[in-house]
């Protein structure tokens, strides 16, 4: 019997509401609970507006959550002040989607990588430089790249700098927000291999945010599918891909194109488009789009129900 894996990041009831005039509120995130264990990869998948990026930002308090709590390495970050948060960012770091936007164009790679070493680890220059060279080699760049500016690097190299910056402070949790979305497929593969290698070497836990189902399948141990601000299904990656339960998950998986000849897909189609997140009704999120809709679906929002083996789905209809 193995011991319970150590949970490094746990959110409970994480919620983010934006006021949009009058008493109306946009529900960007409603009551999201996740557990991320030491050294594992949990993927959050979903389409635009599903709340996956809002979740990442709330989990780090880059955006202030409206409700709920986040425990990082067992400690609540809810009441941390600026200094406490600064310390926290030594334990959890983020790699952003677009390295063109997340690297300061006026800073050399050296300045980018030195900054967290200076701020979080208070290293003197000589030590920082030694560590910076190590980090460059760790992410597959060379010490010569330290003198470059972001515009002198390719997209893939820039993303490597983003990874080096995130790893500089030696976090045990890294949030990866669409780390390969802006890269060509040939570079994407190298980036994913790099992330896997670093995870194994440094025992990192990844919260991997992506809309690319192929990448998620390749990277994640567990998957949580988000739709309209909430999780509709979660489970081990192979279970969710082999036996998707929620109608939204089925629609999403069956829509993903496969780069292979002669693959016939059984499409499950949803009606219409994603509804407005402003003042949503107390009903299943998929009401009005779902081919399996029952009268009961419109009267209350189904919670996540255990379907066995760590697989959970927010749909009583498919389990009935």
């Amino acid at each position: 019997m193995r011991a319970e894996p150590y949970v490094v990041l746990r959110t409970s009831g994480l919620t983010k509401l934006y006021p949009v005039g009058g008493s109306r509120r946009l529900v960007a995130l409603s009551g999201v609970d996740i557990d991320l264990a030491e050294g594992e990869t949990l993927a959050l998948v979903g389409e635009s507006g599903s709340g996956k990026s809002t979740f990442a930002r709330c989990a780090l308090r880059l955006v202030e959550p409206s409700d709920g709590d986040v425990l990082i390495n067992g400690r609540s970050i809810r009441s941390l002040g600026a200094l406490g948060l600064a310390e926290l960012y030594g334990e959890v770091q983020m790699v952003f989607q677009d390295p063109n936007a997340s690297l300061n164009p006026r800073m050399t790679v050296r300045q980018v990588v030195h900054e967290p070493l200076r701020l979080h680890l208070r290293m003197p220059f000589a030590k920082r430089e030694k560590r910076a060279i190590e980090l460059m080699e760790m992410v597959g760049l060379t010490p010569a790249h330290l003198d470059r500016y972001p515009h002198e690097l390719s997209g893939g190299q820039r993303q490597r700098v983003g990874i080096a910056r995130a790893l500089a402070a030696e976090p045990n949790i890294v949030i990866l927000d669409e780390p390969t979305a802006s890269l060509d497929v040939s570079v994407r593969g190298q980036m994913l291999e790099l992330l896997k290698r670093l995870q194994a070497e440094l025992k990192l836990a990844y919260l991997f945010i992506s809309h690319d189902l192929q990448v998620v399948r390749h990277m994640a141990d567990r998957v949580a599918v988000m739709y309209l601000g909430g999780i509709v299904e979660s489970g081990r990656t192979e279970d969710v891909f082999a036996r998707p339960l929620h109608p939204y998950t089925r629609a999403l998986l069956s829509a993903a194109p496969v780069a292979r000849w002669g693959v016939k897909r059984q499409r499950l189609r949803l009606a219409g488009e994603i509804p407005s997140p402003i003042d949503p009704p107390d009903a299943c999120r998929l009401v009005g789009r779902c081919p399996m809709q029952q009268p009961a679906c419109t009267t209350r929002r189904p919670p996540l129900i255990d379907a066995g083996g760590g697989h959970a789905v927010a749909c009583p209809v498919v389990l009935a």
Partner: peptide
């Protein structure tokens, strides 16, 4: 061949049909 391999990310046909 390399572009195809990169696009398929090492998926096997069985995985896709599952």
């Amino acid at each position: 061949r390399r572009l195809l391999a990169a696009s398929q990310l090492g998926e096997t046909p069985e995985m896709i049909e599952a």
